[in-house]
């Protein structure tokens, strides 16, 4: 049971890892994108639309080409989440709208957009159940190594996932190296810490904010894609994504803005998210206690926040200019 728990925890954690990695990249530029839940939702539905179009263009579902089955939803997902990131950047960086308000609006907008298209697709298919199934393309997303099943617990814990799960870990490691080691990463962190200083050093603050927000949104959007295509095996139902977007934002705080910590953190959060199911099997519980246990990730985040402010270590604080618009004239 422990093995299957870890397996499920990882599956739960991957969308959070994408969301958190994307949000960390965004926040390092000083943009607090609270629209991440919306971005991930749009990433999911964009992938679904891509997959739907591809599946419907096939004369025979068994003739699906693995390359296109993966590439089309993937590109659609990246494009959809990129556009949302661009919208957020335009509103906050160019028009200097309040970041919190804009972020919340993007979340509402993204979820509404997703439900609209999701509902439309369900109508088109005319399904009996309020969901749409894309098993043909999903099969390619969730394909794991064939010999994983023969390796017992090792195979189940480490090798039993679709490629997007491994990509999430690679992206998080790359993001971590990028922020820590590269010159562009250094400049990006400077923009989030002190845009006036970055500006004086000849860094184009707006360009960095735009790029990091858009790239961050694209990474976060993949979390939505993974959820639909792999985790729920290609079944889209409206509002199915739940509060994973908010969990991803909580994870950013939990990992003190470090993508490499987010790898472990996401699995921990994933585990906390589903632990009530497993606890229920051990000690039967009523519904209300289960709901209480579902709070665990948020409680842990609050504890980390308290611990961090008590320790008062400068490196564990959010970027100093997080949430603030930058006006050059203010210098």
């Amino acid at each position: 049971m422990i093995v299957s728990f870890i397996h499920r925890a990882v599956m739960q954690g991957i969308p959070l890892l994408y969301g958190a990695t994307g949000e960390i990249i965004t926040e390092k530029s000083g943009n607090l994108n609270l629209g991440i839940p919306g971005v991930m939702y749009v990433g999911g539905i964009s992938g679904v639309i891509g997959a739907f179009m591809y599946e419907n263009s096939l004369p025979d579902k068994s003739a699906a080409n693995p390359f296109w089955a993966i590439a089309i939803p993937l590109l659609c997902c990246l494009l959809g989440s990129f556009l949302i990131g661009l919208l957020y950047s335009f509103l906050t960086t160019t028009l200097r709208a309040n970041q919190n308000v804009t972020g919340l609006a993007i979340t509402t907008f993204g979820v509404g957009l997703g439900n609209f298209f999701g509902g439309s697709l369900i109508k088109i298919v005319g399904a009996d159940v309020p969901s749409i199934t894309l098993s043909t393309t999903s099969k390619f997303f969730s394909a794991s190594l064939p010999f994983a099943q023969n390796l017992g617990w090792f195979g189940e814990i480490f090798l039993s996932y679709g490629f997007l799960a491994y990509l999430a870990v690679i992206v998080a490691i790359l993001a971590s190296l990028f922020l820590k080691r590269s010159r562009v990463g250094l400049n990006l962190r400077a923009v989030g810490e002190n845009p006036a200083t970055a500006d004086a050093a000849g860094i184009n603050v707006s360009r960095y904010k735009y790029l990091s927000t858009c790239v961050g949104s694209m990474i976060a959007g993949l979390g939505g894609l993974y959820y639909v295509m792999d985790y729920v095996s290609g079944v889209w139902s409206n509002d199915g994504f739940g509060d994973r977007g908010w969990l991803a934002i909580a994870l950013v705080i939990f990992t003190v803005w470090k993508p490499n910590f987010a790898i472990i953190g996401s699995i921990l959060f994933g585990g906390l998210y589903i632990v009530h199911n497993y606890l229920n099997q051990l000690i039967p519980m009523n519904m209300s206690s289960q709901e209480l246990i579902k709070m665990a990730p948020y409680v842990v985040t609050v504890l980390v926040l308290i611990f961090n402010s008590m320790r008062n270590k400068r490196e564990s604080q959010p970027p100093e200019a997080l949430g603030l618009s930058y006006f050059r004239e203010d210098r």
């Binding site: 250094l186 400077a190 810490e193 200083t197 050093a201 400068r314």
Partner: peptide, 30 residues
């Protein structure tokens, strides 16, 4: 800077959580 003019402002233009090296490297081509 390109003309060789550097100004030290009253309020320093430094990133607090960076090291001295990182602050010097800021915005420069590797």
């Amino acid at each position: 800077y390109a003309l060789g003019i550097g100004m030290i402002h009253q309020h320093f233009k430094l990133v607090e959580v960076f090291t001295a090296v990182e602050n010097v490297a800021l915005g420069m081509d590797k």
